[in-house]
Write a protein that binds this DNA or RNA. Structure first.
Lengths: 197, 197
DNA sequence: ACCTGGTACGTACGAGTGTACGCACTGGGT
DNA sequence: ACCCAGTGCGTACACTCGTACGTACCAGGT
């Protein structure tokens, strides 16, 4: 065993990755120094060296998911021109190609779950949500953005609770169409534009 | 200390209640035999006597929330005559008088959270969700019911993630109105009825 | 050639956990 | 009067956990 050398340079990030893996598969509650160390193939002493306390490690790992989430619908949303395009992006993010895997949804669930009690995690959670709302606000009236954001999480959460059933695409699509067509705040006139069914 | 006597007859249910209290305030992860025993004012030995293992205790406690959840909008929903009534009930269940407290939402969160990993809890979770969907299906087309159910949870979850901000009632109402007005499956005709803005 | 500061890690401690187990005590049957 | 099944509980064991701490090792300065 060789000590002292400026060893494995990617070790720190490997630990972070292993932390996310463990959280994804077994939850934050199962994220122990020893378990993560075994998963990452590093000795226990390395863990406390790079991350002096466990909470810091977990927070770093959770925070690193922010950059994973953003591209989920950031790019497609910016390209969306009509409201029908926006609906397509949302449907896709809910059940299509750009939608998260069940493991990823579980990971978001972990963040929400711990955010409800731990203020530091709550900050991460709000940051993620705000990123998402900012994206939506660029292409939707504010009320719609809020509702769409809530519904998106509702669908994901539904998938998690019913892993064996698949959501009907038409039901998902029509719901988004209805929300996207909501009038902007303060101006409850009927909008006339491009949401063909 | 008096032993042997058929003691406190309500002890078993007091333990269950204390379990829910602990879970509500500190989460399932903090639900230990010793902590619950202290909270309920019973000795540790009583815990393992009434509930030989911890998982059984937690499952029993979670399952007992089913009867608390149902009346949340069961009765009002059955009285709803028009779709506008349904919207009122939903808005109320989201942010109004019949809406759950943050502590209760946290409790549902706990159930969802553990349901994603523990099959027994998943069964409890699906039962609760199915109860809810059955209620909604009585007064709404099936597609609407699914979307409404997802959105309701989305709103609640939003409240949990943003405890300091209050949801705008009009935004909530309009979103439900849009979903409630969705066409029934297979018949995408425009509906003509009573959803005044 | 010696020292020194920093990196990497092995180990041990104290706190907390679920659960097994055995003893104390009782009310009812004989 | 005795016994005994069953209820209620105190205690201890085996284990896991986060973290503190000492030590081995190396590069670079003097």
């Amino acid at each position: 065993m060789r000590r002292g050398k400026p060893n494995d340079p990617g070790r720190r990030s490997r630990i972070l990755q292993a932390t996310l893996d463990v959280i994804r598969s077994d939850g934050i509650g199962a994220a122990s120094y020893r378990g993560i160390a075994a998963h990452a193939g590093v000795p226990l002493g390395s863990m406390t060296y790079y991350f002096p306390n466990l909470e810091g490690l977990i927070l770093s790992a959770l925070d690193s998911t922010r950059s994973d989430l953003e591209p989920r619908y950031a790019a497609p949303l910016l390209e969306a021109r009509t409201r029908a395009d926006v609906v397509d992006v949302l449907v896709d993010a809910t059940i299509g190609a750009t939608s998260p895997s069940l493991a990823d949804i579980r990971l978001y669930e972990e963040i929400r779950h711990h955010g409800a009690r731990n203020p530091k995690v709550a900050a991460v959670l709000q940051a993620v949500e705000d990123d998402s709302l900012v994206m939506l606000n660029r292409v939707l009236p504010n009320r719609s953005a809020l509702a769409v954001n809530a519904l998106l999480w509702g669908w994901w959460s539904h998938r998690l609770a019913h892993p064996d059933t698949v959501l009907d695409e038409l039901a998902v699509r029509q719901a988004y169409e209805a929300l996207v067509a909501l009038p902007a705040s303060g101006h409850p006139f009927h909008n006339k534009e491009q949401n063909h069914v």
